[in-house]
Design a protein around this nucleic acid. Structure first.
Ligand SMILES: [Mn+2]
Ligand SMILES: [Mn+2]
Ligand SMILES: [Zn+2]
Ligand SMILES: [Zn+2]
Lengths: 150, 150
DNA sequence: AATGTTAATGATAATCATTTTCAATAATAA
DNA sequence: TTATTATTGAAAATGATTATCATTAACATT
């Protein structure tokens, strides 16, 4: 909402009109490191933009997922979460999920190991299942620093 | 429902009573290779056991997850799915998910590659994030054989 | 800048998976 | 066989997400 639209140009030809909610939601997700739910996004934006509707948040998130700007994540806690998607391939990262408190930690330290797994995977999956890999997802479940103590 | 209870002994001390629904649900999951939703399980059992209730299916699935007999999977299609959990560690497998038709394929062919990734992961995650890995999950998204053609 | 077209919004209602409630049932110990 | 109570299942409640539709506002045209 503050200032001019920074993201409009990314949607040339994808949508007809660029609007305040779209700018606000994408802007929020591009700034935060959290993995926010629709309701959390709604609550955050509501404080500075009380006119916004939850329906529009859902609709816009869907648009942003379809156009590849954000990722939709489901960790099995009953609601989807969203994260900004960097354009760079090297930014593909993993998630550590604390099974006790639900904390989600980003991890980008397994790049080469991941690449090796992927290389082998694409090979095996293509040959054996005739399956074309387009994307992948790796998650680690366990206990975070805090929860280990308590 | 048919025959004697095959699974009762696995729950010694875990539950007080072993019942028909519990036996039937676990038996079904132990036989199928599908990744079934609660409603699918309910529908399947209903044909041979019309007395069963959807609530009990949900409750029992929860019990079986908590006691480690089955896995709860969420592929982001709005409903959880369940699979029987083999006791053997070597059976840890991946899922290939077709983004077009939703088909889910089991894959156990990346065992050594996975182990290497895991070994490195546990190391990095412990040192850098002080996170204790208890479990992990790897998924591949793409196009299945059928969907590639059409 | 004012106007017209219609894409986009937001309040409301609907849907759908899952959970809660609670009286009835059935597993098991006595 | 009887008593105890864990478990069940119908019904209602919840919570996330989607559909409807009248209103609004983006923006192309004047
Ligand atoms: Mn992330
Ligand atoms: Mn599986
Ligand atoms: Zn934690
Ligand atoms: Zn397919």
């Amino acid at each position: 909402m503050p200032g001019p639209y920074k993201w409009r140009h990314r949607f040339q030809g994808y949508v007809c009109r660029w609007t305040l909610p779209r700018e606000a939601i994408l802007d929020l997700l591009s700034r935060t490191s959290k993995h926010m739910s629709a309701k959390e996004i709604y609550a955050t934006l509501y404080s500075m933009y009380p006119g916004i509707g939850l329906t529009t948040v859902y609709r816009t998130l869907d648009l942003l997922v379809r156009s590849g700007m954000i990722n939709r994540l489901s960790f099995g806690d009953g609601q989807n979460r969203y994260e900004f998607r960097s354009g760079k391939k090297e930014e593909h990262h993993q998630h550590l999920i604390c099974t006790k408190c639900g904390r989600i930690i980003d991890c980008s330290d397994l790049f080469t190991e991941q690449l090796e797994l992927l290389k082998k995977a694409e090979d095996v999956l293509t040959k054996k299942y005739n399956f074309t890999v387009l994307d992948h997802n790796i998650e680690f479940y366990g206990l975070c620093e805090k929860c280990k103590k308590s």
